[in-house]
Design a protein around this nucleic acid. Structure first.
Lengths: 249, 249
DNA sequence: CGGGTTTCTGCGTTTTTGTGCGGGAATTTG
DNA sequence: CAAATTCCCGCACAAAAACGCAGAAACCCG
């Protein structure tokens, strides 16, 4: 088994269960504990997991207990959220993925907006629920604790039978060659379905995600209608994307 | 169980209940009191909790007043929650409705319990999601903002195709003549479906709900297997229910 | 093709960390 | 004041990590 393959498997396990024991991993993959430990260490250095004595934890895990995340690019995300909200009109059916940028958008929705939001992302749902004029449709299925979103075939089937006006995707990585990419297989399946079910696809990405990529492809750039970052639309880094026909905000 | 994981659980409990006893924690997690004490000490050094003789307090608690129970029957609900939890075994599939009693149960689930919880109740789902060993299946559909639970035909259809070992119902009203009743038509439909899909039906009701009724019937008493209140099982008010064959805890 | 280098992996050995236990000191409670 | 908890300290033991090393595979390059 290849090293990358192994690390991808480990990452998948961590994302699925929020934690992982080195001992159980080395039984699973049938390699020595040292190898696992080295893998975890590498993943930890890349910020993919958090290494602890005896195994590793998912990043979201510790984020819960450090609610003081005011530092995490909040101002950029607010800016993105504002631009995204300007696209939403009364009466629309809006499909949203998970992620902190989407969450910020959910928090910033103006109270007089009347629309229907469809999502399986728990934190976002909580925000929608508190909004006075928004109807909320919850996508059900098994919950991925790490992504805090429902994943699985039922969720995908439900999304497939929707016809939304617009779909907002929190974006983990985007570049010219691979399009939008991610590292969680189940979330990727979900986002694929969301793209197919929406008339317009909007990607929200903070600038540091631009020109990066991850192992699994969600969609080619051609599928994207609008790209929103915190940068001004004429920033040179965004030029190549605009040139492919994507509307950049 | 990983050390960080344990500390996360402790922190969660402290933030939830504003206090925590080392003795109850070491029963919950099944480690020695020394370990708990060391954990609390570490958390205290990081400023996450305030350590006191016998346990720890949340930071917010020490600052302000006693917002505590009195009005909201919290202690009764905790008692009910404890009895309910004693019915859950590892590996079970458990269906739960909404309501504050169910929420209290969700908060009190012991961390080593491994089970699958199925629900459309958003507050309860949040608790299940934070639990280290519980798998969560979310029932999707339109969200009723006031009940904070998913309602509608899709939700009912999904529940119908489940086969749960046990179903816990928060109960708004119960009496001998009408069985269990409620006043929200959509929630009633949902609970009916849940009863049909579960092998055992457990009703959680605080004593003040006993011998009251509401406009819409959910089910006859005959459908109920177990009734849990905060009273001792031999309380005279419960006698008539026990006489109909319901197991009273 | 072949020799040198880098990368990856597993195996001992040593260090560090996490946990439980016993006994005595300190604190709470009645 | 006395009994019961709870806390603190040192120790022992097990599990995990760090470290150095060596063999094997992959890679590079003239």
């Amino acid at each position: 088994m290849l090293k990358k393959e192994r690390q991808a498997y480990i990452l998948h396990q961590v994302n699925l269960h929020n934690k992982v024991l080195s001992s159980s991993l080395c039984l699973d993959i049938n390699v020595s504990e040292d190898t696992i430990r080295r893998d975890l260490q590498e993943l930890a250095e890349e910020g993919k997991v958090i290494k602890v004595h005896g195994g590793a934890l998912s990043h979201s895990f510790s984020q819960v207990h450090f609610p003081s995340n005011g530092v995490y690019s909040l101002t950029q995300k607010k800016k993105i959220a504002q631009k995204a909200i300007s696209l939403i009109q009364n009466g629309m059916f809006v499909l949203t993925s998970g992620g902190t940028t989407i969450l910020e958008m959910a928090r910033s929705l103006p109270p007089q907006l009347k629309a229907t939001f469809i999502s399986g992302a728990i934190p976002a749902i909580l925000e929608y629920m508190h909004h006075p004029n928004i109807d909320v449709i919850l996508i059900g299925d098994r919950i991925s604790k790490n992504a805090k979103i429902t994943v699985g075939t039922e969720a995908i089937a439900k999304i497939r039978q929707m016809r939304a006006d617009m779909c907002f995707l929190g974006t983990n990585a985007i570049d010219l060659q691979h399009g939008i990419t991610d590292n969680d297989w189940e979330v990727v399946q979900l986002k694929k379905a969301m793209i197919e079910s929406a008339q317009k696809v909007v990607c929200l990405a903070i600038a540091e995600k631009i020109n990066t990529f991850q192992p699994i492809q969600i969609a080619e750039l051609g599928k994207i209608d609008i790209l929103i970052t915190e940068l001004p639309p004429d920033d040179p880094i965004l030029k190549p994307y605009a040139d492919t026909g994507i509307k950049v905000l």
